[in-house]
Design a binder for these strands. Sequence first.
DNA 1: CGCCAGTTTGACCAAGATCAACGCAAGTGG
DNA 2: CCACTTGCGTTGATCTTGGTCAAACTGGCG
Lengths: 233, 233
Amino acid sequence: MYRQFGNIDYRNGNAAVGSDSLTITQSGQLDALVALERIGTRLSFSRNAEIYAEGDGADCWYKVISGTVRVCKLLADGRRHIAEFCFGGDWFGIDNSGERPYTAEAVDDVIVMRFQRRGAEQLMQHNPVVASQLCDTMLRDLANAHGRTLLLGRMTASERVATFLLEMFDRGDRAKALDLPMSRTDIADYLGLTIETVCRTLSLFKRDDVIAIPNPHRIELLDRDALEAVSEA
Amino acid sequence: MYRQFGNIDYRNGNAAVGSDSLTITQSGQLDALVALERIGTRLSFSRNAEIYAEGDGADCWYKVISGTVRVCKLLADGRRHIAEFCFGGDWFGIDNSGERPYTAEAVDDVIVMRFQRRGAEQLMQHNPVVASQLCDTMLRDLANAHGRTLLLGRMTASERVATFLLEMFDRGDRAKALDLPMSRTDIADYLGLTIETVCRTLSLFKRDDVIAIPNPHRIELLDRDALEAVSEA
DNA sequence: CGCCAGTTTGACCAAGATCAACGCAAGTGG
DNA sequence: CCACTTGCGTTGATCTTGGTCAAACTGGCG
């Protein structure tokens, strides 16, 4: 899942800014990649910096190069909701509304690629490979979002936390140890719980030797089967 | 929102079955419509009939012509989750996974248009108008799904029911009276509540003269402002 | 008329929220 | 180098919202 458009290392920084030469061959994946790369700009943000705010004009699309982004919303009375976390390779900020419906913030230090929406849309029009890859990304996001409605609508606290941990393990390098970039509050707002419930549930899993927590941001997976049994569905 | 591809009346039944002539001009909306229509099949289902089941092969896309469809999932222990209700004009069953992740059922008597996925995808490749319209549909669905994660993750029972009612009123003909095709159980499973909580909340709104309920499936809007105040966010 | 499916209402219960205190490690300033 | 602060994280006690269980109601239909 995720990590669209393969493994080109953007970090070497050969991206040109907004070149508008859209004379692009309608051929393979690599061309699609190069084409996209040519119209993007690299940007970096430090921990908790705002990438864009709810209400801003939605004239750009973004792709995470490194770090973690949270897409969230603050309600009038202080309740907060995190719609998604985005990691290296994930797209965010793709919507066809005029205004941003959510805010995007850097969870830790983040590097992103920013694409002018106009340019990207033109690219899609002219290059079916880019179009179908972006389409796939959207369909994956949609499936993801539906999975989350199930989680939020019908799962208990333990099921939510177990599902979250497995998701994080599977997105990382599938090692036994996991470094969570986000705080407990972030996790709570992502799972529709309170920070206390998240803590208690993690402590519960620790007590039952399902996970170990050497420090708050590091989780070690001791018993995947147990976690999967809790997460079930 | 929704109701893609305008107002052609499919009910008159001039749809041909699976004609594969994809020699289509790259021009206006109407052509896109005609092109799509030519590769679709009309089907009808009666109340509670299954349109497709979780686990089936996902080789078709669907569009509702008339009636209401629920896209849902039954968990092992009996909990049920409704991902979305689809009304006339809405697409459903568009996903790029091999197997259906959800079941689709007719809420009431339903007529749908079914499209072979292969054909529709080819059509998208060759006809950018169809492609971008389907893309828009997906983006709308995605925004919708994110809205629902907010509702399910952070809203109280009253807020959920108020939001649901407003959504239903706004999707209908915006008259003061609304006929809900779905049962209380359906509403509950859509809002992540129990049937009892849905009933109690509706009774509460009735007691406060926000709505009237002449019969269980008919809701009249007496005080939209009050409902919007509860739904807030 | 009596049954049936769906809805409504009431009494009680529990999962998770809220409120509060404490722990702990990383700064910071004297 | 060591008090003091600050920002998280953890744990405990209590409360509330919404769930569970149960009974009554309603309209349609054989």
